[in-house]
Computed example of a mutant assay.
Amino acid sequence: MLRTLATFSGLLLLALAARAAAITVPATTDQDPALPSLTANGYRFHAESFGDTGKPVLIVLHGGPGGDYRYLLGLQALSDVRRVVFYDQRGSGLSPRVPAETISVEGYLDDLDAIVNQVSPGRPIDLLGHSWGAMLASAYTGRHPDKVRRLVLAEPGFLDKDTMEAAMGGGWPGWAVVGGMARAWLSQWRVDSGGDPHARRDWLIGQMMTLFQAGATCDGRVPALEGWRAGGAVYDAMIGRMGDDPAFAARLSFRRGVEAFAGPVLLMTGGCSPRMGEAQQRRHMVHFRNARLVNLPDAGHALFNDQPEAAMREVRRFLDAQP
């Protein structure tokens, strides 16, 4: 009886909290024309660039699927040696929403190629990706090895079906995560959609994506990563479809063609990242002709946020190295 009463009381408190102040989500570039943007492949991406246009270009690819580049903005410090370009991938962050059925890896690679051709015509780029973004960076390099000069892969989750299981597995997430998920589920009804049919789902997926990071931090806490807005449809089109369609998941390959890339590759990992850490990245290394691995012992999966100075130092050393 007491346990039932305690459970009911907890749920009541959560329900009351869910009726608190409304939550708003930021507008996208099609809703707010004042946002910085870049139009490529017939689409208006939320995007920013830092550094002189005459410098070699470094394009940064954020994680997800369905994240945004806000948490990686510290990399703009590299603008003293590169023109650093950030963009929110199609359907993600502050870029316009699109139907889930139009989202694919191939489409994302086409988007990236259109951006490369626009910001660095006729000149190879440096490419840096984190997590999902690193998976896309690897896939793009395999497709266009002549368009990439140097490649930084910060904890790509998996590159093929052989490395997928290690990245996607996981045990009990812990009560803190479960409680956070319950609060997020209730709190989603506080989202003021303002007529935006994607707002509530985007907000909920953003909360869940952050909570899932708790198992890849040095202290086990949920990381305080800054983000604008998740892309719920993107997450559903990729992660959701992988769960529902094993054949689709088995066909995914982000390493096809990378053996043709002769340029240098830096793989980065955090010592507190169990599933996507050093062991996983060593599995990825074997597919590249000229790769080395750096392990940041006091960082988790969000290594550019956990150890920004150490991570930046390694990236600078890699970009400045002689061919």
Score class of each variant (00 low, 15 high):
R3L: 15
T4V: 11
L5A: 15
L12A: 13
L16M: 15
A18S: 13
A21R: 11
T24Y: 05
V25A: 02
T29D: 08
Q31A: 13
D32P: 04
L38F: 08
T39C: 02
A40W: 00
R44F: 06
R44D: 04
H46V: 01
G51F: 07
T53V: 12
G54R: 08
G54A: 12
V60H: 02
G63K: 05
G63R: 08
G64T: 05
L73V: 14
D80F: 05
F86D: 11
Y87H: 05
D88T: 09
R90N: 03
P99T: 05
P99K: 04
A100T: 00
T102G: 01
V105Y: 10
V105K: 10
E106F: 01
Y108E: 15
L109H: 02
D110L: 08
D110S: 14
D111N: 00
D111P: 03
N117P: 02
Q118P: 07
Q118N: 08
P121V: 02
R123I: 06
L128G: 00
L128N: 03
G129M: 11
H130Q: 13
A137S: 09
G142T: 13
R150H: 05
L159I: 15
K161H: 09
G169C: 15
G171A: 10
W172M: 13
G174V: 07
M181T: 13
Q188Y: 06
V191I: 06
D192T: 10
D202Y: 02
L204E: 14
M208A: 14
M209L: 14
Q213V: 00
A216C: 07
T217Q: 09
C218Q: 03
A224V: 12
A224W: 09
G227Q: 13
G227K: 08
A230K: 01
G231E: 04
Y235H: 14
M242Q: 11
F254L: 12
G257V: 05
V258W: 02
M268Y: 06
T269S: 14
C272E: 07
C272D: 10
E278T: 12
R289E: 04
A291Q: 05
A291K: 05
A291P: 12
N295H: 02
P297T: 09
D298L: 13
H301M: 06
E309T: 14
A310V: 08
A311E: 06
R317E: 07
L319S: 00
